[in-house]
């Protein structure tokens, strides 16, 4: 079961300069919310920003990670 620390580390490792704050919405280890900021988001539309974060987890979204609610910001 993924942890908030694990999700945070994976987002920050995959997206250069990213900062992620991840919370477990239910305590059940499968519904998460992440606030992610990254410099490269400045070049991307909101949809593309979310796709970038979802891509870190691939098929895990909808699998072990049942839900990942996102807020993305274009900053370092």
């Amino acid at each position: 079961m993924p942890t908030t620390d694990e999700l945070k580390a994976r987002i920050e490792d995959a997206i250069p300069g990213a900062r992620a704050d991840v919370v477990d919405l239910t305590g059940g280890g499968d519904h998460f919310r992440a606030v992610v900021s990254a410099p490269e988001f400045a070049e991307l539309s909101r949809i593309e920003q979310h796709r970038r974060v979802y891509a870190v987890f691939g098929p895990e979204i909808g699998g072990p990670i049942h839900a990942l609610s996102l807020e993305t910001r274009a900053e370092a």
Binding site: R46, I47, H50, S69, L70, E71
Partner: peptide, 11 residues
Amino acid sequence: ELVGGCDIVSE
């Protein structure tokens, strides 16, 4: 066109 999911629609 895809607008988004719940988060983007709410935002």
